[in-house]
Write a protein that binds this DNA or RNA. Structure first.
Length: 229
DNA sequence: AACAAAACCAACCGCACAGGA
DNA sequence: CTCCTGTGCGGTTGGTTTTGT
């Protein structure tokens, strides 16, 4: 006899979370804390399975999450820990406050793994790769990779202006799951689908119209020490 | 400008494990 | 001890965005 599915497959919504759903989930957890995840969707009025709610909360909505690019020291720590722990992402994440296992795993697969390979290091064993390419060819590739990475960092680096923009609106105008950014300490940004031009609204609060609940939420003192979960 | 390819990352799936009955 | 339930974890998928031609 197989396990029962974690939720009723019928009528359970899948795919990207909407702002409305996020709001419901956050409100519920703020008011009730993290209880039985299976009960959460029903109690919070969500057509999601509990698992999906837990994932959304732990990987994205938790106020103590630090988002944005990994720093060099974080990256190095991930490499060191991976060398010792292997693909135990949750254990690695436990050593990096504000980072989730999913985030680290994604970063490993998309950046670090390639970086190590370019350096001639096996990302699995952390030992030097046996078969090296022709040295010249390899150096050219490494250089290209470094330039690419540098460019990426430049584009995403936070000067004062885009720091504020990113903080307030996330990286996209339309709501998607990227629009909760954290800079330094735990902070929040929220969707505003009507936003056309950041510069035209900076200093005003279109945020208030769509995210009144945010201020209720902040009233819980989340921006300070987080939920302490 | 249009299209294709590559990169990125949120979310899903299924298994493993812990703990209670 | 066995069964059942809830939760956590790691691998994978697929949609979106970015980059290259």
């Amino acid at each position: 006899m197989g396990r029962q599915p974690c939720c009723d497959k019928l009528g359970v919504k899948k795919g990207p979370w909407t702002a409305e759903e996020d709001k419901k989930l956050i409100n519920f957890i703020l008011n009730n804390g993290q209880c039985c995840w299976r009960a959460v969707p029903k109690l919070a009025g969500l057509s999601r399975c509990g698992k999906s709610c837990r994932l959304r909360w732990t990987n994205y909505l938790r106020p103590d999450l630090k988002r944005g690019l990994f720093t060099d020291s974080e990256e190095q720590l991930v490499i060191d820990l991976h060398a010792r722990l292997g693909n135990r992402w949750s254990k690695i994440a436990a050593k990096l406050p504000g980072r989730t296992d999913n985030e680290i795993k994604n970063h490993w697969n998309t950046h670090i793994k390639k970086k190590l390979m370019k350096m001639g290091i096996d990302p699995v064993t952390h030992e030097p790769l046996h078969e090296k390419k022709d040295g010249k060819e390899e150096r050219v590739e490494v250089k290209l990779e470094e330039e690419k990475e540098k460019k990426r960092l430049e584009n995403s680096s936070m000067n004062d202006e885009n720091l504020m923009e990113s903080f307030l609106w996330g990286s996209n105008d339309n709501y998607n799951s990227n629009n909760v950014d954290v800079i330094g300490e735990s902070m929040w940004s929220f969707p505003n689908n009507e936003l056309e031009d950041f510069n035209s609204v900076i200093g005003m609060s279109p945020l208030e119209e769509t995210c009144e609940w945010l201020f209720d939420y902040q009233g819980f003192g989340v921006l300070g020490d987080g939920l302490g979960i």
